[in-house]
Amino acid sequence: MKAYIDASLLAILKEKFPSAEYDSEATQPAVYVPAAEIVAVLSFLRDDERFAFARLENLTAVDYKTYFEMVYHLFNWTAGVWITVKVKLDHEQPMVASVTGVFPGAEFEEREVYDLMGVGFTGHPDLRRILLADDFEGHPLRKDYVQIMPPHVRRIEKGGR
């Protein structure tokens, strides 16, 4: 990421959303917001002309074993600056509001996160598994996922069958 959002703008964001937190020491600080406010924050970032982050370039989730982290990378094309917004989620029952209302292009990515990471999205128009089969158990990108052997692979004994 080349140009990151200015510290003064981050202060404005902090003013608007007092619950948003960021490390003011870091060069490219990610903004942590509570799960309840993510839709409001993203629509503010998109609509406010000082920010004008019109593009949600990337959406994903990371499993930090004790908590999940939703990561939103937003890009302002006219100014060429980035902002990273993060949401920490409970590891037992990760739920977050869907941002498809703000950025409709997030639909497939949220489904992918739901499928592989097991994060639930409220308000998603069509929340189904996208890559794995509907009857698949577990969420492979979680760190505690244990891979099971494929059911039909039989071990061949030495010296013929």
């Binding site: 370039e57 990337n58 994903t60 990561v71 292009g105 990515e109 992918e112």
Partner: peptide, 27 residues
């Protein structure tokens, strides 16, 4: 084509996410 890589300081990446353009274009 975007790569989001999280490093925990070890020899292997902690998490890699690939933003695949055709996947999102299919929307």
């Amino acid at each position: 084509l975007g790569f989001y890589i999280v490093s925990d300081g070890g020899p292997k990446p902690y998490r890699v996410h690939i933003r695949r353009p055709s996947f999102i274009n299919l929307q």
